[in-house]
Write a protein that binds this DNA or RNA. Structure first.
Lengths: 339, 339
DNA sequence: CTGTTAGCGCGTTCAG
DNA sequence: CTGAACGCGCTAACAG
């Protein structure tokens, strides 16, 4: 129709009204007579007009876009959370701008800036660091920061709105479950030490071990980085030691599965010789051999809820500083044996 | 500093120059005297100015944002491609807006509209459908469409710039490899029938079977939807039939792994009784039992190249209609036995 | 090399 | 209920 780009002005001309009326007819249909509204709609159709949302955002100072910052998009754990976020975003007419940190905090800061540059209204972080610069002494949210929600992870010091599970309790439950099956020498493969979430899981693990009367567990605790490879690596270390534990608890399924393979290959049988429990309940866990007993996190719900909390902040019902914990669930499959 | 939002105007005042000069000093530093540039930079620092990229985009009509449309973000195959896209985007100061189709073509169209609404400059699709409305008779790219690149999949009829591998040749190679190990009854689990990529793989499979003198293979061809579950489902079907094939070739690793589990559980041994070959070389494939022989696609490169092609279109060196094929590679692990 | 001026497309006054 | 006029922050065109 219109040679190049049709604007609200062209629609106004065709409909024989003013641009203001077109704008109103589109944004607040009830603030305009139904007859004129129809005229406008017809003109919109005839001209093939589509709103320039850039101009709108510029004018209204709201982009309806949220940055989602992910540590590693390759990790399917995050994929489900993103899905949850995306779905709620979409049904509220929001869009998400994806930021993959790829293990470089510099990247995180760069994505954090997008809000200052007005490219996005807020930021949901699945990472464990706050993607803004701030002095170490800061104890509360900086009012200059854009709306922020932390899904999964949280910050030790600054109270940021967030969603997650009770990691300490979950880890404790994992250990208790193994204890109930008769295990006492239980090794733990944790994630990075600087992750608050991992610190909580370690606490839960230690608490469980203490219940078994074991307080010195240093030689049973290992660290990976949540990848399959790192789980395999740790298992190699473990296997080369003199005495294997009877059970292994990993802070995520990927590491559990990585370890599982190395252990099986070294000739020891799972679960007969060693039991394994994972964390997350990733899809693949049900397809291992043996299928992995693990602790499920409600990933989609975590994502959905964090986007909902973002909307609450954006739409004014500020819930600043609130942390919500969702229920987890132990999924029993075949990787644990009774002693 | 500035009470609320500082704009280029405030910087100009502080620096004692005009707004145009500030704009230039920031965008084309070499078009301005180094002395004034320093003054401006200092003023920027002093005021805490950050460019309102919304206003800039509005003015320049370029957002430096590209929509990436994914069929299912949960599938780790796509995650690596996104990573490749994202990296090239970032290093060219572009951002990506993620669209998860979630099996609903309506969603795809909605994301397709973002360009018309000026929220993005172009669209990279990892899906098999073109996310714009067009009449069935269309045979070429509509000049009104925004720059479009199809990664992985492509369209049968309309020549859209794209990146991928030679799926027919790859599937043929897979069958030939199995044939060389002595297999003749080779089943094939394909993806959705309406996917051009799957049609190509089927062609390759049939060609390979023809080389073995087998032209009637209908009872050996199955369909899944690329998920673990669908692979398992097909395997159940297969196992309930009277006679198992000696080898199984799946159009992706997830289906291969799903089938693998069901087959092992039904008491038949892999690879002794039945061999399996997958497609993609997803991370988990190396951690199955047995580790999966598969055909690797260069996912990251596919992503990177498709973003590069997008940039070429965006920056004017239009490469419209060009399809590039990247090399694939057979990764031999332990899931195939010689007969 | 720098300043002046205009205008991108929209939403929002304020009158009528 | 509708129209005229303004301005968001920035860059592009043109003068100086």
């Amino acid at each position: 129709m219109g040679a190049s780009v049709v604007s609200i002005k062209d629609v106004a001309t065709v409909a024989g009204v003013s641009t203001a009326t077109v704008s109103r007819a589109l944004a607040n249909p009830d603030k305009v007579q139904s007859k004129t509204r129809d005229k406008v709609l017809e003109a919109v159709h005839k001209t093939g007009y589509v709103t320039n949302s850039l101009a709108r955002s510029f004018r209204t100072k709201r982009t309806r876009t949220v940055v989602v910052l992910v540590p590693d998009i390759t990790n399917s754990f995050f994929a489900n959370i993103i899905q949850g976020i995306e779905q709620v975003a979409r049904s509220n007419n929001y869009r998400i701008l994806l930021g993959d940190m790829q293990n470089d905090p510099e990247n995180a800061l760069a994505y954090g800036e997008l809000c200052a540059q007005r490219q996005a209204d807020g930021l949901i972080s699945l990472c464990r660091t706050i993607p803004f610069e701030y002095s170490k002494s800061r104890k509360t949210v900086d009012p200059k920061w854009p709306p922020l929600v932390m899904a999964c992870e949280y910050d030790d010091i600054i109270a940021v709105p967030g969603v997650g599970i009770d990691n300490e309790a979950a880890a404790l439950d994992g250990v208790r479950y193994l204890a109930k099956q008769g295990h006492r020498r239980i090794a733990f493969i944790n994630g990075p030490e600087d992750s608050p979430l991992c610190r909580d899981r370690l606490k839960g693990y230690k608490k469980g071990m203490a219940e078994l009367g074991q307080r010195a567990v240093a030689d049973l605790v290992f660290h990976g980085d949540f990848t399959l490879d790192s789980g395999a690596q740790v298992a190699r270390q473990m296997c080369s030691a003199k005495k294997l534990p009877t059970a292994l608890f990993a802070a995520n399924d990927a590491m559990a599965i990585g370890a599982l393979q190395v252990i099986k290959r070294s000739g020891v049988s799972v679960p007969k010789d060693i039991s394994i429990v994972g964390f997350d309940d990733v899809k693949f866990s049900a397809y291992c051999d043996p299928p992995l007993t693990t602790i499920r996190q409600p990933r989609r719900e975590i994502g959905a809820l964090s986007m909902q909390m973002m909307l609450d902040q954006l739409e004014g019902e500020a819930a600043r500083g609130k942390r919500i914990q969702l229920p987890y669930e132990l999924i029993v499959r075949d990787s644990v044996a009774t002693i």
